[in-house]
């Protein structure tokens, strides 16, 4: 069973393809890191896959009716918007919206999902605070909790760890890995290659809109790929705590 299947997905801006004939699929239990330098097309790829952008080629999600899509994939945009001063609990509960029949209040299952999402992100103590009055990193965690509360088989997150402190970054990726152990799947764009190497089961490397490599972290983060796509000299070091990715220098 696949949760997301892309076939030759292409997005053009003017004549230039920003995402160029990308194909891959994601099944349950996978924690997929989408990596690539700025402007490689990570955000565009995910938005097109969700049907939020006009595109050519096929995306299984984009072809679903809006309702089914919302039940299959939760989307955490890069831009962290909280328009109104609502409480943390109310904001996280918005994630239940696709499941609620029109005009009904939160049911027992919805409350349980909100509760689980809050506790996964360590936010239970924050529930009654106004989301707009939290720090940037705390708001980011609240928004991740919102996406978790949607309880979809697939979670798609655009730079979920940006702006989080180191402990919160690791905690977030641990939550993602926990989700995959429960049979769900995660597709997250990441800039921290070390985090990507340690916590993702699979990496997809994008460069200039093209899929450069797709596979286990050790196969994707080769010195050659890193040099070609990121213009970095880097090394994977095997330690007792698993592989560590270390960038050493910028290549000329």
């Amino acid at each position: 069973m696949t949760l997301l299947a892309l076939r030759a997905l292409t997005v053009r801006r003017g004549d230039r393809p920003v995402v160029d004939r990308v194909s891959f699929s994601i099944g349950p239990g996978e924690c997929v890191g989408l990596i690539g330098p700025n402007g490689a097309g990570k955000t565009t790829l995910m938005r097109a896959a969700l049907g939020l952008l006009a595109h050519q080629g096929h995306s299984s999600l984009a072809e679903m009716p809006a309702r089914d899509r919302a039940a299959t994939a939760a989307w955490l945009p890069q831009k962290r918007e909280i328009a109104w001063p609502v409480t943390v609990e109310a904001l996280v509960a918005l994630g239940r919206l696709p499941h609620l029949p029109r005009g009904t209040r939160l049911r027992e299952t919805d409350r349980a999902a909100v509760e689980a999402a809050l506790s996964r992100m360590g936010l239970t103590a924050f529930r009654d605070r106004l989301a707009t009055e939290l720090s940037g990193g705390e708001q980011a965690r609240v928004l991740i909790a919102r996406a978790l509360a949607q309880e979809t088989p697939l979670l798609m997150a655009d730079e979920p760890s940006a702006g989080l402190d180191p402990a919160a970054q690791i905690a977030t990726l641990r939550v993602f890995r926990q989700l995959t152990r429960e049979g769900r799947a995660v597709l997250a764009s990441l800039h921290d290659l070390n985090l990507a190497a340690r916590y993702c089961s699979r990496l997809i490397l994008l460069g200039d809109g093209l899929l450069v490599a797709d596979g286990p972290p050790a196969d994707v983060l080769t010195p050659d790929n890193i040099a070609r796509v990121f213009h970095l000299e880097a090394r994977m070091i095997d330690t007792d705590h698993g592989p560590l990715f270390q960038a050493l220098d910028v290549l000329p």
Binding site: R67, P77, K79
Partner: peptide
């Protein structure tokens, strides 16, 4: 973006 992805 988030609203649309939630099926709105």
């Amino acid at each position: 973006d988030a609203a649309q992805a939630m099926g709105i």
